[in-house]
Design a protein around this nucleic acid. Structure first.
Lengths: 117, 117
DNA sequence: TATAGTGTAGCACTCTAATAGTACACAGCA
DNA sequence: TGCTGTGTACTATTAGAGTGCTACACTATA
């Protein structure tokens, strides 16, 4: 993963990644996700950083914890994430993209071409 | 300005804002930009934070300094910024936007509609 | 020549991110 | 009952962002 290439905090990038994997169907409802130590080794970050990501996602009600066992995907998490992301995409991302396009003189046709190409 | 709503550092958001203003034609070649103290008051941040932004933009060759006088826009800065931003938009932003669309099941038509609406 | 407005260079402080390591209570299983 | 793998709770350290403040050298102008 390209962590420090981003302005975003690593623990948030990890949370995003896990959400991506849930959307992709890698982890389904009530599936167990990797342990904090396991995921830390995989991503080559500190355990505490993954702990912070899992804490964050628990507070967002996307994963839940069973004592001594690990973290699991909350029922309906996938749709929950998609709803949050769609809202963000429509209300934040897309308007900012359109602003950039106007500012840079990039037409919608150019975007459509790149999309289809 | 909506500073802490973003994951990005404030001094980088300020640099972005100034670049936006240069592109918009608010400051042209060899125009003087606001002093660090002035801009700090306007944006309600600390002077040192603006200093950091101006340092950053100087190293990027977008503004330059005259001792005792202030900071000025480098010749050709506007086209320079546009070139950098176009590259970033095409190689980073747009691919990520398309990835999000595929992931969220958002079609290009929906984007076109929002753009025209 | 004084004065006001420039950038610049410090210092001290707080906060958060991230790393590193240790220790402990819990659950499942041999 | 032990053992292993869970999360959790600490402590400590490093680094950077951001704030607040002071002081100084430079430039133009009254």
């Amino acid at each position: 993963m390209n962590f420090n290439n981003s302005d975003k905090a690593i623990f948030l990038q990890i949370a995003d990644r896990l959400c991506d994997e849930i959307i992709a169907g890698k982890y389904k409802d009530d599936d167990r996700i990797p342990s904090v130590r396991e995921y830390a080794v995989l991503l080559e970050v500190n355990t505490n950083t993954v702990v912070k990501s899992y804490d964050f996602l628990s507070r967002e009600d996307i994963i839940y914890n069973k004592r001594g066992l690990g973290y699991f995907v909350t029922n309906g998490a996938k749709q929950h994430i998609i709803k949050i992301r769609r809202d963000e995409f429509m209300k934040q991302t897309l308007p900012e993209v359109f602003r950039q396009m106007r500012m840079l003189g990039i037409g919608i046709e150019e975007v459509i071409n790149k999309f289809n190409g």
